[in-house]
């Protein structure tokens, strides 16, 4: 297992380099222009000067090389300097700068990380915690009313897009309910809000309810269906019959034998879904103005902000590659039948 992990880790390096190049070329060759969103009152000579100042006109390979250097060499050193107070000689070097905000991309990402992790991460956690029991009970009581209901909820979760469900809950809880009511919820997420005491925690909780639940619905739908299918696969296995024949308590049969085995694929699916937390939930973030990584990405795309788009997508790529590896390793740990050596 250890050598497998090491081998896979080494393999990720060329994979990621290749991905970074592909992302760079896609972003660069797509018809987008950092000055495209400026008002038409700005004449083209000025636009050209702006592009020149941003370095958009340099040869592609130079731009890519610069990005590589900044991302892999400069930014890690700056991070180390910040973290440990070392002097690594980064002063005066040009960091990876966003076209739109003219500020370091990594700082933008760091700034966005908390709200994304807070909202999307909580949603993932809540969604998973709801999904597991639903999936287990649905499978155990297949075709029961509960199962039918679970199927219905999952169908809704799968098919209703967040730009609908999000707006629906806003209309219900922010518009129709008077704002002095206990059930009123804020429709706009306050990213500057800090939790310092019980009251501010309550406010944080309230403003998270809607985005978290909208996202959790989708996550619940996926994971509960997956859990149900996996449980059903195992419930009909001979070893479950064996367990019953042994005279084990039904609880033991389901929780120890069936559940443990069913969880192997579920756990890996959950692990594979984690990078999507960092990717944020573009639409949900937009609807509730959470302004996390998803919103950063979409604004950067709209604004032709190549360094931000490139860096964000690349970080997502790293996470996806990494969590794929983690899922594989988890599979190996959880299922004794699988050996990677």
């Amino acid at each position: 297992m250890f050598t497998f992990t090491i081998r896979r880790l080494i393999l990720t390096v060329p994979t990621l380099l290749f991905i970074s190049f592909v992302i760079f070329m896609i972003v660069k060759l797509s018809p987008s222009d950092p000055t495209g969103n400026l008002p038409l009152t700005i004449p083209s000579e000025v636009r050209e000067q702006i592009r020149e100042a941003l370095g958009v006109n340099k040869p592609l390979i130079v731009q890519y090389g610069l990005w590589l250097k900044q991302f892999f060499w400069l930014e890690p050193r700056i991070y180390l300097e910040h973290a440990f107070g070392w002097d690594m000689g980064t002063a005066g070097e040009v960091r990876l700068i966003s076209y739109q905000t003219r500020s370091p991309v990594m700082e933008l990402i760091m700034q966005r990380m908390p709200q994304t992790l807070m909202v999307v991460g909580t949603a993932y956690l809540v969604g998973t915690l709801i999904a597991l029991p639903i999936g287990i009970i649905s499978a155990y009581k297949q075709y029961s009313v509960f199962d039918q209901l679970g199927t219905l909820v999952s169908m809704i979760g799968f098919s209703v897009p967040p730009f609908f469900s999000g707006v629906l809950v806003i209309v219900l809880f922010s518009v129709m309910i008077p704002s002095d009511s206990f059930f009123w919820l804020p429709s706009i997420y306050d990213t500057t809000h800090e939790v310092t005491d019980w009251e501010s925690f309550k406010y944080q909780f309230r403003q998270m309810i809607m985005p978290v639940m909208v996202l959790a619905l989708q996550i619940t739908a996926q994971i509960s269906r997956f859990t149900r299918a996996s449980m059903l696969d195992n419930l009909n296995q001979d070893y479950v019959r064996t367990a019953r024949a042994k005279g084990l308590k039904e609880q033991t049969v389901v929780l120890v034998h069936v559940l443990r085995n069913s969880m192997i694929p579920v756990v890996t699916v959950i692990a594979l879904g984690i990078p999507s937390i960092f990717g944020g939930a573009i639409i949900t973030e937009q609807v509730f103005k959470v302004n996390g990584l998803g919103q950063l990405l979409i604004i950067a795309i709209q604004g032709g902000d190549v360094p931000t788009v490139q860096t964000l997508t690349f970080i997502f790529a790293i996470l996806i590659v990494l969590f794929n590896l983690i899922a594989d390793v988890l599979y190996g740990i959880l299922d004794p039948r699988i050996r990677y050596d």
């Binding site: 070893y239 064996t242 367990a243 443990r260």
Partner: peptide
């Protein structure tokens, strides 16, 4: 009373 199953692979909990 006990039972011996047809498929010895499937009837044993793999974990």
């Amino acid at each position: 009373m006990q039972m011996i199953f047809q498929d010895p692979q499937a009837s044993l909990n793999p974990r």
